[in-house]
C-alpha cells in the first residue's frame, strides 16, 4: 500500500519536518499571544490598512505551492528528474518573488511613516512578516538542495528530501495565510 507513492513514506527527513513544524508553530503561537497581550496592555495600538500588495503576494505564494506539488507528482510518477525540474525552478522563482513583494510592502508602509518603532502594531507587522520571510528563505535553500539531489539521482529514484521539503513549503504557505488573517483582524 505504501509503494503507490514513494515520496509519502515514513522517512527521517519527513519526521524531521513535522517536528520542525511543531517548533515553528509554537514560536508563532508565542508571537501571537505576545501580540494579544501587548494590544491589551495600553491604549496605544495604531490601526492601519494593510498594504494591498500583500494580497498579490499571497496569490504568488499559493501558486508556488501548486507548482511545487506538481513537481512532486511529476517526480513520483517516474517521469524522471528532468520532467520535475522546470516545476521546481518555477516554485523557487515564485518563492523569491514573494519575498521581493514583501519587501515592497514594507516600503509601502515606510512611505506612510510607519516604522518598526512607530507603535506596537507596526512593530508586530514588521516582526511577523520578517520572521516568516526567514522561514521561507530557509525553504528556498532546501529547494535548491533538492534541485542538486534531483540532478544527481537516477530516474525513478525520488530523493526523500523532496517530499519533506514540499511538506515544509506547504506549511510555510499555510503559516502565511494564518499571519495574514491575524494581521488583517488585529491591525
Amino acid at each position: 500500500m505504501s509503494t503507490a507513492n514513494p515520496v509519502i513514506t515514513s522517512s527521517p527527513s519527513r519526521t524531521g519536518v513535522w517536528v520542525g513544524i511543531a517548533a515553528i508553530t509554537m514560536s508563532f503561537a508565542a508571537f501571537t499571544s505576545a501580540m494579544v497581550v501587548r494590544q491589551g496592555a495600553a491604549p496605544d495600538w495604531l490601526h492601519f490598512r494593510l498594504p494591498p500588495l500583500l494580497y498579490l503576494n499571497t496569490v504568488i505564494l499559493l501558486a508556488s505551492s501548486a507548482t511545487l506539488e506538481r513537481c512532486r507528482r511529476r517526480a513520483a510518477s517516474g517521469a524522471g528528474p528532468a520532467a520535475a525540474i522546470p516545476w521546481l525552478a518555477a516554485s523557487i522563482t515564485l518563492g523569491l518573488l514573494f519575498v521581493v513583494g514583501q519587501a515592497l510592502a514594507w516600503r509601502d508602509l515606510a512611505a506612510q511613516g510607519l516604522y518598526l518603532a512607530t507603535g506596537p502594531s507596526s512593530a508586530f507587522f514588521y516582526l511577523l512578516t520578517a520572521v516568516h520571510a526567514i522561514h521561507l528563505l530557509g525553504g528556498v535553500v532546501a529547494l535548491i538542495y533538492v534541485w542538486f539531489r534531483l540532478v544527481r539521482t537516477e530516474a525513478n529514484n525520488v530523493p526523500s528530501a523532496l517530499g519533506a521539503t514540499v511538506l515544509y513549503w506547504h506549511f510555510v504557505g499555510v503559516l502565511w495565510l494564518y499571519l495574514l488573517l491575524i494581521l488583517a483582524i488585529r491591525l
Binding site: A23, M26, A30, A34, A117, P120, A123
Partner: peptide
Amino acid sequence: GLIAFSVLLPACVLLFLDRVGGTSF
C-alpha cells in the same frame, strides 16, 4: 525542549528589539 526553546527564542527576539530597535514590547 522543543516546545520550551520555541517560546524562549521569540521572547529573546522581542527583548532584543526593545533594546536595539526602539520598540516597546
